[in-house]
């Protein structure tokens, strides 16, 4: 399965983004050990924005985010993440949709 997963970065490479440098639109609440919802984000995010750091905590790098909102559905209610849209005009711009 891993050889499949690696390709997500290649896929995102096709996409067009306007990165709002310095402004993050999704934040992960600080934690020692990741909760169930946070662990689920490691696999459920279609752009693989969530990863474990070397301390075993879940971190987000939202540069490749395609703004699907899935992580909000999974992680906002429990307070694990704070979710906002990027500033107007920033983020993903689909050419085909």
């Amino acid at each position: 399965m891993t050889d499949l997963s690696v390709r997500v970065e290649d896929k995102l490479y096709q996409n067009r983004y306007q990165v709002d440098s310095g402004k993050v639109h999704i934040k992960v609440r600080e934690h020692d050990k990741p909760s169930g919802p946070l662990r689920a984000l490691l696999t459920a995010c279609p752009a693989r924005c969530y990863e474990l750091n070397d301390k075993g905590q879940v971190e987000i790098t939202a540069d490749g985010c395609i703004e699907c909102g899935t992580c909000r559905i999974i992680g906002e209610a429990s307070g694990d993440i704070e979710w906002n849209y990027p500033r107007g005009g920033y983020g993903i711009s689909f050419k085909f949709g």
Binding site: L4, T43, A44, C45, P46, T70
Partner: peptide, 18 residues
């Protein structure tokens, strides 16, 4: 369904590749 992704640990990108 998002709940199914959450419960199974399947990834969207593997699913579309398969």
């Amino acid at each position: 369904l998002v709940s199914d992704f959450q419960e199974t640990g399947q990834t969207p990108y593997d699913l579309i590749e398969r």
